[in-house]
């Protein structure tokens, strides 16, 4: 067994251990405080942990499936996220063709570009070509009401749900000396640090959270939760430096960057939800809400993480 694979299995086993621990805690809490399901916070916690098991198994299988598995998994996530986002936009029947192009041409093509490692086009396809071409399709329908709002929302949806998501599998395409064949571990690093930061912010917030950061956007986010969560996630990220091409200090800096972007992502996507008057993006993941509810922080962290890594470590 080569090095990358054994490291990957170590990581998966580690996450499995954390989940076993979380499940035990959740089970104890339920046994002690909510034997008949009367405490909704504990019920929600356990629903979340169960969903984490499923998400972990899905992503582990994708990692073990290699490039194809990873690209396919994130293409599917992108599809689900785009569906959630477009549902909340002002797109009308006049935009039907544009929507069909977005779902059935733009999305598959972007992930095909990632699959074939065509970096140059993958980086500009949606921000340049789709940005200019898709409004033409909507204009041809002749419906001018809300036109600017409709095309702006569509472009935003594609940037967030397709372009940003595609940066996660694109990490496999970086060419880092001494790190060949270990790209999957870089993705695992990103996902672990971002998601742990979310979870730890939640836990720190519940334990010692007092001052709210943005009560209008997200009543559950507190200063204490933010600082405690980001710092502890950064600490864990630093301890995971062996997965990455970074030194421990570099891993710490990267982790801090990822957690900040992740936090910002959660905030921005919350603002959109409040604007549209919904609590969750969807209902596909029990206890969590929709796909975007789980992906919001990854979406914001992935492109920055990719470009910083590419600028300083990539060759060729």
């Amino acid at each position: 067994m080569d090095h990358a694979r054994s490291d990957l299995l170590t990581v998966i086993a580690g996450i499995g251990g954390v989940l076993v621990f979380a499940s035990l805690v959740g089970w104890l809490l339920q046994w002690r405080y909510s034997p008949d399901g009367e405490n909704s916070a504990i019920e929600n916690l356990n629903a979340r942990i169960r969903a984490w098991w499923i998400m972990t198994i899905a992503i582990s299988l994708a990692f073990l499936g290699g490039r194809l598995g990873v690209v396919a998994l994130f293409a599917l996530c992108s599809f689900a996220a785009l569906r959630e986002f477009m549902t909340l936009t002002n797109a009308t029947r006049a935009d039907h063709n544009s929507l069909a192009v977005a779902f059935f041409v733009v999305l598959p093509f972007q992930f095909w570009l990632v699959w074939t490692q065509w970096y140059g086009l993958a980086a500009v396809f949606i921000p340049v070509y789709v940005f200019l071409l898709l409004p033409i399709v909507s204009a041809l329908s002749g419906e001018t009401r809300n036109y600017l709002v409709r095309i702006a929302e569509m472009q935003w949806a594609l940037m967030i749900c397709v372009y940003c998501v595609s940066y996660v599998p694109a990490l496999l395409n970086l060419n880092i000396p001494g790190y060949t064949g270990r790209g999957v571990l870089l993705i695992a690093f990103l996902v672990i640090v971002v998601q742990l930061s979310d979870v730890l912010q939640y836990i720190w917030g519940k334990l010692i959270g007092r001052r709210k950061i943005a009560p209008k956007l997200s009543p559950s986010k507190t200063v204490e939760g933010f600082i405690g969560g980001c710092l502890s996630a950064t600490l864990i990220g630093t301890c995971l430096w062996w997965m990455t091409p970074f030194s421990p200090l570099q891993a710490a800096g990267m982790s801090l960057l990822i957690t900040q972007m992740g936090f910002a992502g959660g905030l921005v996507m919350s603002a959109i939800k409040r604007d549209r008057g919904v609590k969750d993006w969807g209902h596909s993941i029990a206890g969590h809400g929709g796909f975007i509810d789980r992906l919001d922080s990854v979406l914001f962290a992935a492109p920055i993480f990719f470009h910083v890594t590419r600028y300083f470590w990539n060759v060729g």
Binding site: E84, M86, F103
Partner: peptide, 8 residues
């Protein structure tokens, strides 16, 4: 329309 567009 012939192609259904994915919306929830």
């Amino acid at each position: 329309a012939f192609i259904p567009v994915p919306l929830m």
